[in-house]
Amino acid sequence: MQLTTHTDYALRLLIFMAVRKDSTPARVQDAAARYGISANHVAKVAQTLVQLGYLHSFRGRGGGLALAMPAESINIGALVRRTENLRLLECFGPDSTCPIDPACVLKRALAEAQQAFLQVLDGYDLSDLVVNGDVLHELLGRP
């Protein structure tokens, strides 16, 4: 399964937020610069993460982003479920037009594989992804 760029950037932004040692809100531009990605893309991802309750956004001078909950409370499987369209094929939706849908073993196999993928991600939270926080902090240029 391939994750979208949106989910990739969501995970990167959350990692950036979790390894920060500064208590002031983080700026989208800083995260984008550290990863070498578009600030506009990161801003859209940040907006999604704010809407989903993973980040707080503060406006005005001194504003920026902060984690809305402890890293231990951010489950990676749940995040992927909330940011991805998990419909692998047309037949995964309610409007399947495939004539073999009722007897399709491939659909069942793909659904099982997808569940296994998500089940592995369910075993991780954000704190697991930043267990090497000092190294990540250095690699990201001391965010």
Score class of each variant (00 low, 15 high):
residue 133 G to H: 06
residue 114 Q to R: 15
residue 121 L to S: 01
residue 110 L to P: 00
residue 117 F to P: 01
residue 108 R to G: 09
residue 127 S to C: 09
residue 110 L to D: 00
residue 133 G to T: 04
residue 131 V to P: 03
residue 107 K to F: 02
residue 109 A to L: 12
residue 138 E to V: 04
residue 109 A to F: 08
residue 137 H to F: 13
residue 126 L to C: 14
residue 112 E to P: 03
residue 124 Y to K: 12
residue 125 D to A: 14
residue 128 D to V: 00
residue 105 V to K: 10
residue 116 A to D: 10
residue 129 L to N: 06
residue 105 V to G: 07
residue 140 L to D: 14
residue 103 A to E: 09
residue 105 V to N: 07
residue 121 L to W: 01
residue 133 G to E: 06
residue 131 V to N: 07
residue 115 Q to W: 13
residue 140 L to Q: 12
residue 119 Q to T: 12
residue 112 E to G: 05
residue 128 D to W: 07
residue 124 Y to A: 08
residue 108 R to W: 08
residue 119 Q to V: 04
residue 103 A to Y: 04
residue 139 L to E: 13
residue 138 E to G: 08
residue 113 A to Q: 15
residue 133 G to A: 11
residue 111 A to I: 03
residue 113 A to P: 07
residue 102 P to W: 01
residue 130 V to H: 03
residue 106 L to W: 06
residue 117 F to T: 02
residue 134 D to G: 11
residue 133 G to F: 07
residue 114 Q to P: 13
residue 115 Q to Y: 13
residue 137 H to C: 06
residue 132 N to S: 13
residue 118 L to D: 01
residue 113 A to H: 14
residue 131 V to K: 09
residue 114 Q to W: 10
residue 114 Q to C: 15
residue 102 P to T: 00
residue 115 Q to T: 15
residue 106 L to Q: 06
residue 105 V to A: 13
residue 139 L to N: 09
residue 130 V to G: 05
residue 125 D to G: 13
residue 115 Q to M: 14
residue 129 L to T: 04
residue 118 L to R: 03
residue 134 D to H: 12
residue 111 A to D: 06
residue 135 V to H: 15
residue 130 V to Y: 03
residue 112 E to M: 03
residue 117 F to D: 10
residue 120 V to Q: 00
residue 138 E to Y: 06
residue 130 V to F: 03
residue 137 H to A: 07
residue 139 L to D: 11
residue 105 V to Y: 07
residue 110 L to R: 00
residue 121 L to P: 01
residue 132 N to M: 11
residue 111 A to K: 05
residue 127 S to P: 05
residue 138 E to K: 03
residue 119 Q to N: 09
residue 132 N to C: 11
residue 129 L to M: 10
residue 115 Q to R: 15
residue 114 Q to S: 14
residue 130 V to K: 02
residue 120 V to D: 01
residue 136 L to F: 09
residue 106 L to C: 07
residue 124 Y to V: 03
residue 112 E to T: 07
residue 102 P to L: 00
residue 135 V to R: 15
residue 126 L to E: 14
residue 132 N to E: 14
residue 111 A to Y: 02
residue 108 R to K: 14
residue 106 L to Y: 06
residue 126 L to Q: 13
residue 125 D to M: 10
residue 120 V to F: 00
residue 135 V to I: 15
residue 134 D to Y: 11
residue 140 L to N: 12
